[in-house]
Amino acid sequence: MLKRGFYWLIPHPFLTLILTAVWTLLQNEISAGMVVFGLILGVIIPWGTSVWWPDTPQGFRLGKMFVYAGIVMWDIVVANIQVAWIVLTKPNSKLCPAWVVVPLDLIQPEAITVLAGTITLTPGTVSADLSNDGHSLLVHALHTDDPDAVARDIKQRYERRLKEIFV
């Protein structure tokens, strides 16, 4: 009963915390009044918008998410240097872009969104589309000799970790 009341009032506890943090950062200073006001916003906004996000993701491992974020950050820097190198040195005729189809094991919409965002930010790939039934992801690779290897890489490096985060 108490738990149901809690989830009725705060449907997405993480969203509440993030909104509070964002409000505090927006003020550019930490004071008790602003944190309290941020908390009020953090309760009202998820409550008011819960109609559009009815299913709370069940089971979310925050610690593993930080490890994942670290890996992605590193990959973003590496990806930028790689893409910059391709832009500056590869003539258009030698570039071999390709479509890659990634079969998905993830089913939670939140997890698929994180995966698609990660793919866009990392080495030479942009996620373009999701299939109607949500079981495959269309990815465009800037320069690759072996599209299957790109798909394997994505599944091995990101999807496997996301499966552990969203259980």
Binding site: P103, A128, D129, S131, N132, D133, H135, S136, L138
Partner: peptide, 11 residues
């Protein structure tokens, strides 16, 4: 783009 792995189309 190539077809998805299952029997459907891109959204």
């Amino acid at each position: 783009p190539p077809e998805p792995v299952t029997e459907c189309t891109w959204s």
